[in-house]
Design a protein around this nucleic acid. Structure first.
Lengths: 337, 337
DNA sequence: TTGTAAGCGTTATCAA
DNA sequence: TTGATAACGCTTACAA
């Protein structure tokens, strides 16, 4: 069994008493084969446990059916939920996901990516906010279609799926003001990815429009610990903020925990807090965080349907950009509502 | 470019002025090729952007380098951290991960798995607790090596990686008793996977040995919401527990939140809580949960190194079982420590 | 050390 | 509708 565990179309053909092309046609959608032949082939295939070899198939068709998911921080709630959604929808579309972790930045990223290229993935979906241009170039150069999620890239070719980060952030200013807040703050990471910066910029300019200044603080990654540090900095200001918009939910959770447990601040009475992503934890009763929901299912759907379109018959598909809305999920970390 | 984006060994050979076998040998570890030839080949390959086609290579060698990760609930903190660890280590070992989501149980699991089989994955790693025997059979029958994580399966062939769930759970009884707790409870999910049941059983029997009864309650999935429901049930008992061991950290978080916010119970003063997995949230200051750490890196290492071993030269590798320790991570959800 | 040639399991083309 | 045949890009005897 370790010697030859796999059944080939040849063997199926022999058992069914037909040619191997008949077998191939049976498993090729839209090929012409008589009901009788098909029946016999299917029967033989079933009995032998035959599975079409996609390695060989991909070689022939120059189309592997493999889609490469390039992602950093995949242990993170938002990232992992996006991976889940995309993987599921790819499966539903008859494709399969390959996973490439880009956590380490020391060239091993490049190595892993080349590894994926060797498998002739039809496409790559870049879920990470990593602003590394060489990655996208490498994918494109190898004939892969490319989907960039939350990356404000203006290159030609890839599908770009973005959120209305800035607009969403702007809407939040109104909510804060309506709650009676006057001293607004923005707690950001230093990562500087386009979507993070768009949230900051959208928030700050909208506030300015309404005649309110915003204190902006940036620190570290987009995780929980950064939120704690940012709280240290913002909550010790002489003019302490009464409303803070955190660039991610994880930052918001860290911020809230520090505010409550270290500064004994009551939320939302003394401080209103909002986040972004709507991770599962945002709904936990310790946080009840008002936040913007990432439409992960919609993002996945856009990506997968675009990949399903044949770019030969649809030239517009070669260069496409989609903007989705992040809806505000109201919970009790902001007064009123 | 959309026509023929990939460079073949043939083209590299022509440019380097050698035969295509020379090219192949250059990229085959341990093949004999002169330094001069190698240099010219590498140079040409570099210039052309050549990448060995692993589809074709896998076809020849009957070894794809693909490892299939079969997993449900991959958006969950513990699952996603395990996926991250395994994916990274596979990359380091020169292999690549394929991701199969088994969330939907309605035959689409089977479909997705067959999809993976078609790619002739060398191995499958089952990360999910899904006790579906047909899946393991299907993998084995198709000549894949198999790794079962946290599945108490006694089949021959696969590598089985398990934790000392029962022993760990037993140790916790001592900790609870030392904290002065007398009314012990176990909050479990209804999922009934081997590791969950081992935790329950280990806890209950260890307590019995020490002359203490345990109230066991089971409900729903292994998630946060189940914890809330379990809290409703256990904290309304006439003899209210003063210590509860939750089968997973997510259950523990839900339990703690309900205990505090609905029952105004102070932790750890009035109630000691412990969990299992050591997810990131367990360290958050709202929880500070004492819990057992899943050794995800060690699990991943065991799996990947086993896959790297050639089973032909190491017959014992065909049937191997590993038991790892879950270490108790002390935080402040239990008195003392 | 090198090149030639066969074969891996497919699908597409083309007669029959 | 069917079967033979030629690719696809690779590795590996085998011969030079």
């Amino acid at each position: 069994m370790s010697q030859k565990p796999f059944v080939s179309a040849q063997e199926v053909a022999e058992r069914a008493g037909v040619s191997r092309s008949a077998v191939s046609r049976t498993f090729t959608p839209g090929a012409s084969v008589s009901p009788e032949t098909r029946r016999r082939v299917v029967e033989a295939a079933e009995a032998l446990g035959y599975h079409v070899n996609h390695l060989a198939r991909g070689l022939m068709l120059n189309e592997s059916g493999i889609v490469c998911l390039i992602v950093s921080d995949m242990g993170t709630p938002y990232r992992s939920s996006l991976i889940r959604a995309v993987t599921q929808q790819l499966q539903d579309a008859g494709k399969i996901a390959m996973l490439v972790n880009t956590d380490r930045s020391d060239g091993s990223v490049d190595l892993a990516l080349r590894q994926a290229i060797r498998y002739r993935a039809d496409a790559s979906i870049i879920l990470s906010g990593m602003p590394d241009k060489s990655i996208t170039q490498l994918c494109l150069k190898n004939g892969q279609r490319l989907v960039l999620i939350n990356r404000d890239d203006d290159q030609e070719g890839p599908l770009r799926i973005n959120l209305d980060d800035a607009a969403a952030a702007g809407r939040l200013v109104t909510a804060f003001l309506r709650a009676g807040c006057r001293r607004l703050a923005f707690a950001n990471s230093e990562a500087g990815t386009p979507s993070l910066m768009a949230r900051e910029h959208g928030f700050v300019t909208a506030a300015k429009t309404m005649g309110v200044e915003v204190v902006v603080e940036r620190y570290g990654s987009t995780g929980y610990e950064s939120g704690r540090v940012l709280a240290q900095r913002l909550l010790t200001l002489s003019e302490r903020p009464d409303a803070v918009f955190c660039a991610t939910d994880l930052i918001a959770c860290g911020f809230m925990d520090a505010a409550r447990h270290q500064f004994s601040i009551s939320i939302p009475d003394q401080l209103c807090v909002a986040g972004f992503d709507d991770i599962e934890q945002a709904a936990w009763s310790s946080y009840q965080l008002t936040t913007f929901g990432q439409p992960v299912e919609a993002i996945a759907r856009e990506a997968v349907t675009w990949l399903g379109r044949d770019d030969a018959e649809d030239p517009s598909a070669r260069n496409h950009s989609v903007r989705l809305n992040a809806d505000l999920v109201w919970r009790s970390s902001i007064r009123g509502g």
